[in-house]
Design a protein around this nucleic acid. Structure first.
Lengths: 126, 126
DNA sequence: CCTTGACTTGGAGCCCGCTCCAAGTGCTAT
DNA sequence: ATAGCACTTGGAGCGGGCTCCAAGTCAAGG
């Protein structure tokens, strides 16, 4: 699968896909004789994983570290798990912050509803 | 309340507080005779609101627009509410992305647990 | 053979959101 | 009076994460 096809499939620019590989977010993608990227299933899996994690705000650094460990094989299983557990913790933390802000937004919106309703009554009544 | 005190109270640097005011995230803070910022309750409320919204990833632009509308008075109530509703929508969207990534992380971590347990059994058994 | 077009690389540039700095001003304590 | 310190402003710098560009290579079609 060419970089263009992968780009269209996942909604990531070809530049971004090359960038991801360059900085080590995904392992080296197989190439054709001419050196052109030819994404296989494994590479697609990585692209999808990275897209998912990036969209949740997981940092490039943690993800490159994960990819690096993965390429070192079996002896890094524990390290990889530890890394994922830590990222999960951070993700939960961020979600908790967002939940607080969401509550606050809900509250403010309710206040606006009340203010607008009052204004409406005043217009009608007076 | 001085900028230093506000800084300590909210864990934002004095530079960040000045920056927030400069770009219009919060309305102008009252000054002493000598031109030194003297945060009042209203300003503190703004700082806290902005800190909360920023920590949830709400963009500077939306927040400056909200602040701008606020300073224009009553006739912008509806516009402000609309802005908040839109930001709430975006916040919910981001949280949904994060929930998906979290599920995925949980799944991966479980897989690692299984792999590690299997490896353990193999070591003991063979 | 030559053009076209997708691909390659390395590197520069850009946007966001701070963060830091230089130069200057003004209260406070000795 | 003068040292010291917190404050001011405008502007430069920085890190993250892309995004774009120039220059070159290669495969396919006319």
């Amino acid at each position: 699968m060419t970089i263009r096809e992968v780009s269209e499939r996942y909604g990531l620019s070809a530049d971004t896909l090359r960038y991801y590989e360059r900085v080590g977010l995904i392992p080296p993608v197989p190439r054709t004789g001419g050196g052109v990227r030819d994404y296989d299933e494994a590479s697609l899996g990585w692209v999808e994983l990275i897209k998912c994690m990036r969209s949740a705000g997981v940092g490039i650094e943690a993800l490159t570290e994960y990819c690096r460990l993965f390429q070192q094989g079996e002896e890094t299983l524990e390290a990889r798990k530890a890394l994922l557990v830590e990222q999960r913790r951070q993700l939960r933390e961020r979600m908790e912050d967002m939940r607080k802000s969401l509550d606050r937004l809900d509250q403010k919106i309710e206040n606006y509803d009340r203010d607008l309703a009052r204004k409406e009554r005043e217009l009608r009544g007076g």
